[in-house]
């Protein structure tokens, strides 16, 4: 548990390294909601094959790490189906209306000092914190 921050830092460096490769190699921003959303609503056009390959890698390596038993992870997702559906709808809708999520606005936006990325990140962290505090105090758990 005390070592979690090292894993966080290491994983973060990998995430940023991946984003750097995508930017310098393909000239693209590694934003998951943009890549997935573009494939879903058909707005990605020329980036279709790259987007699908990106998603394949994103699914395959964690699957390998988990299923091989090398680094198993529990998601601890809530068993409350209503919460899951509401959360999924809000995340899908919000990231596409606001044009980015944690990877696009957070990692790629803040690192280029984009005012939009910084403002969006402050807003979604604040909104998330309000909801978590409300869940903890009103429902008494998550």
């Amino acid at each position: 548990m005390e070592m979690d921050w090292i894993w966080g830092l290491l994983g973060g460096l990998m995430i940023g390294g991946a984003g750097a490769l995508y930017l310098l190699g393909n000239g693209r921003i590694m934003g998951v909601s943009g890549i997935a959303g573009g494939l879903i609503d058909g707005s990605s056009r020329s980036a279709r094959a790259e987007g699908l390959a990106f998603l394949a890698g994103l699914i395959a390596l964690p699957a390998l790490l988990h299923l091989s038993g090398a680094i198993p992870v529990a998601t601890h997702i809530t068993s409350n189906i209503a919460l899951i559906i509401a959360g999924g709808l809000l995340v899908g809708l919000g990231t596409r209306i606001g044009n980015g999520c944690t990877s696009g606005h957070g990692v790629c936006g803040i690192s280029r000092l984009s005012p939009r990325g910084i403002v969006a990140t402050l807003i979604y962290i604040a909104a998330g914190a309000v909801v978590v505090v409300a869940l903890r105090s009103l429902v008494g758990g998550l």
Binding site: V32, S33, A36, L58, T75, H76, I77, T78, L83, I84, A86, G87, G88, L89, L90, V91, G92, L93, G94, T95, R96, I97, G98, N99, C101, T102, S103, H105, V119, A120, T121, I123, Y124, I125, A126, A127, G128, A129, V130, V131, V132, L135, L142
Partner: peptide
């Protein structure tokens, strides 16, 4: 958009990635 996303993120603890 960021507000809606953050609310959903807080409810479940998952973002798209």
């Amino acid at each position: 958009g960021a507000m809606l996303f953050g609310a959903g993120w807080g409810l479940v603890g998952l973002c798209p990635g």
